[in-house]
Computed example of a mutant assay.
Amino acid sequence: MRVLDYLELDAQLDRAGIGTAHDQQVEALDRARAAGSDVDVVTSPWGDGGPRAAVRRGLAGRGVLADVDVIHLNLIGPASVALARYARLTDTPLVLHCHVTSEDFRESFRGSNAVAPALRRYLRWFYSQADLVLTPSEYTKRRLLEYPVDAPIRAISNGIDHGSVADHEAYREQYRERFDLDGVVMFAVGSVFERKGLTDFCEVAAMTEHDFAWFGTVDSGPQASPTVTRWTSDPPENVTFTGWVDDKPGAFGAGDVFFFPTKEENQGIVVLEAMACGKPCVLRDIPVFREYFEDGHDCLLCETREEFADALNRVADDPDLRERLGENARETAADHSLERVGEELVDTYEQLIEAR
């Protein structure tokens, strides 16, 4: 069984959650193959030799695109639309992975709220072409059913590549010194958006005496929202925006309590990464986190800035609470192994092929 697992604009998305999700899919399928599954994954639609060789094959009357049994697409742009049409023309099972919804597009870039309603209509059309839509959570599945998307939908966790953050402690002193961090540090990881809870992150920081650090890309071009520009150019004294860091484990090594007041997520790979590092997590109480995590067991869920500040202070002042939440978080992250993701993906592909 040969699968095209394709991410349009992969080079541009290597720092984004979609890029991480795609990389983890490929790794999960590689592990499934190593464990004995009959699956071979390719990430380019062009087959061997790239687009120039594909053109030569086409001129010679041979197939232009890679010969595959399943097409699995992870984005929604023109190349993905073309490949979805190709799947229909060749009767190849088509899987569309929902990493983008109109809800999580809001409060991301300048003008994103204005575009979101039109995006919802486009996504309803695009996802409805699939033989199967995969979502990272039951929450996102419910969202798509409300659009409504006219295709079967199945929820599969994005999983967590434990190896990607395994050596985080080795970076601790280097990164804390580099960014002048001290004490029990509250931290977030990922691109800086208002949708990720930027304003609450800063306002809560101003209510406490702890150091706060946000490790992630800060947009400075015309697409940057005024809110991002305002907070990152003049943050509270105890908040550091580091910008992009080359060593992701360094972010998880430097921080002590993962603080993520995001307003909307399809799952939140970064939370699983923090949990894999044994970090206690203080999160916003939103449905997708209720689906995967348990308040008071592997995280603390909060709704207001006052609740966030109180939770962060409690965790900072209580080493036993930090340790208990962190150890339970490790166990939660272990349930999202890439081995399990690979098994579920292979089973999904096999079912689609058998149904043909």
Rank of each mutant, 00 (worst) to 15 (best):
V184M: 02
V192H: 10
E173K: 10
G49K: 05
N158E: 08
R62K: 15
A329M: 03
E343I: 03
D23I: 08
G61H: 00
A116C: 10
E138P: 01
K263M: 09
M207L: 14
L345N: 09
R85E: 15
L65I: 12
V341G: 09
E27C: 08
R121P: 00
A53N: 00
S112Y: 02
Y349K: 04
F258T: 01
V115P: 00
A35Y: 01
S108L: 12
D40Q: 07
R340N: 12
R88A: 12
L144F: 11
F193C: 05
I71T: 07
L272Y: 08
T135V: 12
V39L: 06
D67A: 13
W231E: 01
F201T: 12
P319V: 07
A16M: 14
V288K: 04
G63Q: 15
E344L: 15
P226R: 02
M1S: 11
A21R: 04
G77H: 15
L9S: 15
G63M: 07
A151Q: 08
L83H: 03
A21I: 09
R230Q: 13
L119N: 09
V288W: 07
P93H: 00
G183W: 05
E107T: 03
S108F: 09
P148L: 00
S191F: 12
L338M: 15
F126A: 03
R230C: 01
F259D: 02
V271F: 03
V70G: 04
A116L: 10
V341A: 04
A206S: 15
L123M: 12
A213G: 04
G326K: 08
W244F: 15
R56V: 06
D161L: 10
D310T: 14
V26H: 08
D335C: 02
E327W: 06
A309R: 06
F212I: 08
A118N: 11
E203N: 15
E354I: 07
D10V: 15
L181Y: 11
E323A: 14
I160Y: 04
F215A: 01
A274Y: 06
A35N: 10
P235Y: 06
L59W: 07
K279D: 06
P261R: 01
T348I: 03
A53E: 11
E306F: 00
E294V: 13
G17Y: 05
G163K: 10
S108T: 15
T262N: 02
A116H: 07
A118Q: 14
Q25G: 02
D246R: 14
S108G: 07
V26L: 08
G159M: 05
G63V: 05
T140W: 01
D320T: 06
F258P: 08
I353S: 02
N313L: 08
E103T: 12
H97T: 12
